[in-house]
Every structure is written in structure tokens, then in C-alpha cells.
Simulated scan of single mutants.
Amino acid sequence: MRMKRHSQQGLTLIELMISMALGLVIAAGVIQVLVSNSVTDSLNRAIASTQESGRFIVSRMRQELMMVGLYNKLDPNLNELVDVVEEEVFVRSNPVPIPGDFVARMGLGSLQGASGANDTLVVSLQAPRDCRGFKLGYPADDEFYVVNEYFVEDNKLKCRGFDGRVLRGQKAAEAHSGHSAFTLLDDVISFQVLYGVTNPLDPNNLALPVRYIDASALPAAYAVNAQVVAIRLALVVKGEGEVNLDAPATFKLLNEDTITAPDNALYKSFETTVTLRNMKNFTRGSAL
């Protein structure tokens, strides 16, 4: 009895070429999806980091600046090493110091950056610590005259605190803390500040900002008894991650000319206006 043999046939060359082509198409599609997901993930991380950084610094700056001009000579925690009545007048008159206000550091004060460069913000208040958290040699429960300086160095927003009494030549500085600056936020490419000043001739003395000026105009405003009752901040922060946009972003901050980001990474601007409650109340009350 003979066994019937069945012949086996393989794929033809055409079938193999079609199969390979389909495989390549599918593989290309998968790779494209993976690349797209990676780019989207990097972009999302960059957006999240800029949002987090911006919200953090705006929140912190608002909390610290809201207290500018605070001074209560009747506060039992206020250190009375000096004449607090005279010091109150000085703090209230110089909530935003300018160069020349302090004999021990004549150059310290709010400054307008030249040609769109970063500004420097300096503020005064009564507080238990400076912006770095230092007591500057005072007892744990004492409050004192604090001067805080905010500036950008090497694309880092930094703060540095001073004892206002040392700056005025009323006491010696404590050696343990020095004047080292602490970094508040990395990757800041622009930091701009405007100051809302009152109209000294306002018969109703509402203590409202009638205009916003930069630091270069503060001496003239102080000369006619105008007072700073609001501070407007704006800054540009760079996001984290490998993001490469089609073109560098551009930004218009406050009264400055338009700036262009230094590269194609993701950048975002943030702006806030802080009302100086203590200065508004003081300005209103001073005319009563």
C-alpha cells in the first residue's frame, strides 16, 4: 500500500517582501509613538517644574514683602538696644531703602538694572529673623530692625539679610552669620521690580499707588514725600528637562523692553503685585 505524499510550499519572495514592508511600517509607528510620548513627557515635566518654581517664589516673596514697613515700638518682643522711637521713624520713612541710606554700607539699596538687566530689591521691616532665617546675634524671642536684599547672581535669585542697626552704625556686626547670600530659586533669567507710590498732594490721603516707578525714580519720589505702598514683581524661570522648542521664547516684563530667552528651552514668566499694608496704614494715619 503506497503512502500519499503531500508537498509543502514556503512563502514566495513577493510574500516575504510584503511581510517585511508591513513589519517596518508597524515598527516605525511604534517608534514614533514612543518618541512622541518621550517628548510629551519631557514637556510636561518642564511645564510642571516651571509652574512649581514660579508659584513657590511668588508665594514666598508675597509673604515676606507684605510685612515691609512693619514697626511697632510698643511690641514687647522688640529689642530696645537703640532708641526705638527714632528707629520707627527711620523704618517708616525708608521701607524701600536706596543707596546712601546706610552709613555702614553706602551702596546698599534698591537698584534699577541698566538696559534691562536684573533689578535689586531692598526692603526694611521689624522681624524676628532676616530672609535667611538668621537671628544675627539677637536672643531667640527678640525682634529687631531687618533689612533684606533680593538680587539675581549667576541666574539664581538670592537673598541676603542685614541688621539695620549695624547698617546705621549703631552696633557692631555679629561675626557668626556674615552677609553670605542664600539661593531662593535657580534658573531665573530676569527679575524686575516696580514701586507703587502715593500722591503726596492727595487731599483725601487714600494711600493708593497713583503710579509705578522703577528704582532710579525713588530718590525724586522720596524728595516730594511720596511713599511706596505697593511693589510689583516679575521674573522669568526656566523649566527642567530636555525641551527644545522651535524658537526661543520672548517676554515683556513690566516696563522693560521685550527680552528673548537665551535658548530654545521652556521658559515661563510670573508676575505679582504686593500691597504694603503697613505702609498704607501708616501713610493714612500720618495725615490725621
Rank of each mutant, 00 (worst) to 15 (best):
A181S: 15
E256F: 04
L254S: 12
A234R: 04
K252W: 05
I259K: 11
S190T: 01
G241M: 02
R165H: 05
V210C: 00
E240T: 15
G196F: 01
I259R: 14
H179T: 15
A207Y: 04
V224S: 15
F182A: 04
G241N: 04
T183I: 05
D246C: 05
L253S: 03
A234E: 02
P203D: 10
K158A: 14
L208V: 14
L206K: 11
N204S: 08
P209M: 02
L218K: 12
P203Y: 13
G239N: 07
E240K: 15
N204W: 10
F182Q: 10
E240F: 12
V188H: 12
G161R: 11
S180K: 09
L194P: 04
D202I: 02
D202L: 01
L218D: 00
V237S: 03
L167S: 11
V236Q: 03
K238L: 13
I231A: 05
Q227G: 08
G239A: 02
Y212F: 13
V193F: 11
L235K: 00
G241W: 01
R165I: 03
G164N: 13
K238E: 15
Y212M: 08
V197R: 00
P203G: 14
V210M: 09
L235R: 03
V237Y: 06
A247V: 07
L157G: 04
P219T: 09
V228L: 07
T198K: 09
K252V: 08
A215R: 08
S190M: 01
D246L: 13
H176R: 14
N264G: 06
V228F: 00
N204Y: 11
E256L: 10
D257G: 15
A261Y: 05
N204V: 10
E240Q: 14
V243G: 11
R168E: 04
I259G: 12
I259Q: 12
G164F: 00
P200M: 03
A207N: 06
L266E: 13
A181Y: 00
K268I: 03
A217W: 09
F162H: 14
F251L: 01
